[in-house]
């Protein structure tokens, strides 16, 4: 007789699912509930229960990708339901910081279906979560899943060991931002720029940053576009050179731009030309980009 091992996440979800009405499980409602979760419109005590709507979304969308994950989990003796909970967590973490952007763009979206719009946004996050997990499960060199699982090298993964814990990691901007090592690196970049760069160079960097951020810059208004373009080009060469030469790490620079550039631009007076800024710089440091 076959014995089914039902894991806790599966049990919890099944119980929750059986209590839902048909209307509650309609995709439009699922999208609304996830939207509310992401906007923190759900009371804390209901958060865990409502979180199941994300699992429901994962089970319904990108079915082919999900089936592949199921099959890979079986092969590698990994609890598929654990991956669902972890993917739901990552889905939430990826989208939460973007809700302002999504809301802004959705408001500008004319004549379309709001549900269809957020469906596409949610699906993108899910594709990423699924892709990342597939890459981890599929890559035979991934250490986190290998131990004791692929014993005899057969296609079915040999004799199954005990179910493996899922150690699903992601590579995304949110994680880069919260990494302590990156934060320290970013702080060092900020300190170095404040100490070593002249005001003209910082003014230029701020102009470049404001341009990337879509902010109407008051800097370098007296410069010809061609000159600005060349200055920006040299600025890029300098900063990317730091990464190539191992002076600073790429992720530290990402954090520097996200955290310290707004601060640096606030601290740096806007100057209309590169030369004007050069004359007024405080310290006589290396000034060529």
């Amino acid at each position: 007789m076959l014995k089914y091992n039902i894991s806790k996440p599966q049990r919890d979800y099944s119980r929750w699912r059986s209590e839902r009405t048909e209307a509650e499980t309609e995709l439009g409602n699922v999208l609304d509930r996830i939207w509310a979760l992401l906007r923190h419109e759900v009371p804390e005590r209901e958060f865990e229960r409502e979180f199941n709507y994300i699992i429901m979304f994962i089970l319904r969308v990108q079915v082919r990708q999900n089936n592949m994950i199921k099959s890979l989990c079986r092969q590698r003796n990994i609890d598929y339901w654990d991956t669902l909970v972890i993917r739901a967590g990552h889905f939430f973490e990826h989208l939460r910081p973007q809700m302002g952007d999504v809301g802004h763009n959705l408001a500008k979206f004319e004549g379309g279906d709001t549900h269809a719009y957020i469906f596409v946004v949610f699906r993108n996050s899910l594709i990423h979560c699924n892709n990342h997990l597939i890459d981890e499960l599929y890559n035979p060199n991934t250490q986190s899943y290998d131990d004791g699982v692929m014993g005899d090298g057969s296609e079915d993964g040999g004799i199954p060991a005990a179910k493996q814990p899922v150690r699903h990691s992601t590579s995304n901007f949110g994680e880069i931002l919260t990494d302590l090592h990156n934060k320290e690196g970013a702080k060092a970049i900020y300190a170095m720029i404040k100490d070593d760069w002249g005001k003209n160079k910082i003014n230029l960097l701020c102009h470049y940053y404001e341009k990337l951020s879509g902010v109407k810059s008051e800097r370098l208004l007296g410069e010809k576009p061609n000159n600005i373009h060349k200055h920006h080009q040299r600025l890029r060469e300098t900063m990317i050179g730091w990464v190539e030469q191992g002076v600073f790490e790429k992720d530290a620079l990402k954090v520097f731009f996200a955290i310290y550039m707004p601060k640096l631009c606030q601290e740096t007076e806007a100057m209309s030309t590169y030369k004007q800024a050069e004359h007024s710089r405080g310290e006589n440091h290396e000034n060529t980009i």
Binding site: R39, R60, D101, A107, A116, S213, G214
Partner: peptide, 29 residues
């Protein structure tokens, strides 16, 4: 799971309240 028409543009509120205010609305990137 097709979305019923009646559910479109319903209970979703879309004011911006989160994220980096410097970036929101910027198309670049």
């Amino acid at each position: 799971d097709a979305l019923p028409d009646s559910l479109s543009v319903c209970s979703i509120s879309i004011e911006s309240d989160a994220g980096d205010p410097v970036c929101i609305g910027n198309l670049i990137g």
